[in-house]
Nucleic acid binder design. Structure first.
Lengths: 344, 344
DNA sequence: ACGATTCTAGAAAGCGTTTACCCTACGCGT
DNA sequence: ACGCGTAGGGTAAACGCTTTCTAGAATCGT
């Protein structure tokens, strides 16, 4: 195992000073052609690569963006990660990925690690419980990261206000729920069950809010019996529908907090001998890749996942005045498939 | 924006030398309790965090593992990534994620970046085209990374031989295909179509090989008309079945190269008025999360995705003799569901 | 009570870059 | 001819940490 060559070795072989080598490599400073060639030859000869840590230490930019999310396999997160990774490499950055699995301690740990790394940007993804504790925590994060020269980006979660030192990139969560519910309403449905997610989570609260607003816009009263809660799993959807059925609640349509819940709901309906969409229409949220594969293909609210990720990186990396506290909201649309049918 | 504090600031505030602060922080060297407390107080007071780059430069371990894969959203990769991320944080490492989208130039670029970063491990994931060019490329990678102090790990792709300076962590790809095919054969099926992936790819070649070996074991002759190829998408599965049907090829079961292909195949069968599993049994590969959600729920070969990732990291990080060239093979099993039925 | 250990902690030499600063030589306007 | 601006390149000082070397103080054995 050879010792890896340093810039000094290159300088020696090329017969120039280290400064010259550095200049050839970064390409900013004028260097005579003959010299440049000599250096480049030496670099190739020695198979030299710079030491990123030395460069970061000296130059003080690490070329890394960090992505912090719940997990890596849920399509919602995976697609945002995909956008982040895409834009990061586009911008010549590397992409650090960390998961919290919902553990605030782990999150704190990660933010600390990112301060150590001097990440150019730290992107926190996904809904949260908007408590005072949360706000305070974020404020500490923002301060710490700012001192380390990093940008904090809140992605797919609400802004903490225009004065908060972070960039926010969200999608129109409530708007999507409004559209979905309106779609059912304008198809004639009036008894629409809302299978919600965990209470208190910004993402699912907003979806519930959109549902309510749509009903109000159509002058349909909100029946609390139609609103249930659970976690975001298929099992949860299954059980919520079972409960509804057992309780004898009447409904002709379901708006599910996300596609997993919708899938579980459809399974429960099938188990109960009800047909989708003939007896009950179902609409999901997130437009997960498996939505079109379900039977029937699931109508769902499509999110610009990848663009959320890309935008987060783009804004964070864009140096300039006032760029530290921006707020972008991306739109959603309904992907119409076969799980919704007009009520005759 | 305050300038971030350095170890000198901490030392000054605590009234000790920087060496002492460093020792308190890393915790290896004996330090008097009183001193330790003073230092810790100063650290807290200043909200100090070490500079990872300075540490890496000085200490020469970066605490980063790098994951290089085709993309980030395909479940196969996402689950391996999950395992890698899990084990990495378990081992106090950060996880860099890069995607190639199949571009060898990008891969080369990434390996170079990882040499710059002094990643502890570089994990290359997924099947490849096993050409001489590929071997040579890997050899260059291995050399370059070795000099940079990194371990090269081949994950979910074949070993390059016991002398090749890399760790290999694969799953029994052909074995899984053998089991799947055997499952169909022992259910009485004899005309089993194999919907293959791209020709030349180690992953799909191995699956085809397992299929062949199972037929031979059951003394069923291999009919080339039953073997088709395509890419790994649902569309591909759809078209391959359409073609088979159009050509009038007889079959009572399908073994698909992966679950996406299987999903497309089931769609094509349904479109042709054939029932799964009454008319045709179908079995997939990878046991993707949507497999149980299909109608009927898809029987599939389950892979230890997460364990592949975890093992890759574990082996790479385990220092010791001979640990640079190991070969681990993990097993698979069939997840039985509703898409296979015995032939009466 | 005295040399020999054992603790504890500081000084300083790197680690491999970048970059501010300095110097030389050359071309050019006047 | 002469000063001057500029291209080209070298020197050395950071950057913030780890770690070796060294040494004083405290403890111990006899």
């Amino acid at each position: 195992m050879n010792k890896r060559p340093t810039i000094r070795d290159v300088a020696a072989m090329a017969g120039v000073s280290v400064a010259t080598v550095s200049r050839v490599l970064s390409g900013d400073y004028p260097v005579a052609n003959a010299t440049r060639t000599k250096v480049q030859r030496a670099v190739r000869e020695l198979d030299y690569v710079v030491n990123a840590h030395a460069r970061a230490l000296s130059g003080s930019t690490s070329n890394v963006v960090a992505l912090v999310m719940y997990d890596v396999v849920t399509p919602f997160f995976a697609f945002i990660a995909s956008g982040v990774e895409y834009q990061a490499t586009e911008s010549d950055r590397l992409c650090l990925v960390c998961t919290t699995h919902g553990d605030p301690d782990r999150e704190l740990e990660i933010v600390k690690l990112m301060r150590e790394q001097h990440a150019d940007a730290v992107i926190l993804v996904g809904g949260v419980n908007m408590t005072d504790d949360y706000r305070e925590r974020m404020y500490r994060y923002a301060k710490g990261l700012e001192d380390a020269g990093s940008r904090l980006v809140l992605c797919g979660r609400p802004s903490l206000g225009p004065d908060f030192p972070a960039i926010t990139v969200e999608y129109d969560n409530a708007g999507g729920a409004f559209s979905a519910t309106s779609h059912l309403l304008s198809s004639g449905h009036r008894r629409i069950a809302m299978l919600g997610g965990p209470i208190g989570n910004t993402t699912f609260d907003a979806r519930l809010d959109g549902y309510r607003r749509a009903l109000e816009a159509f002058r349909v009263s909100v029946d609390p019996a139609l609103i249930t809660h659970g976690d975001m799993s298929q099992d949860s959807g299954f059980r919520q529908v079972q409960r509804l059925l057992a309780d004898g609640v009447e409904f002709t349509a379901i708006f599910a907090a996300n596609d997993f819940v919708a899938a579980g709901a459809m399974r429960a309906l099938r188990a109960a001998g009800k047909s989708v969409p003939d007896d009950v229409s179902v609409i999901g949220y997130d437009d997960t890749p498996f939505a079109p594969e379900l039977t029937p293909a699931l109508t769902s609210v499509h999110l610009p996942h990848e663009e959320l990720g890309r935008t987060a990186v783009k804004l964070a990396l864009q140096r300039g005045e006032g760029s530290t506290r921006q707020h972008v909201m991306l739109g959603t649309h309904i992907a119409m498939r076969d799980s919704v049918r007009p009520l005759i």
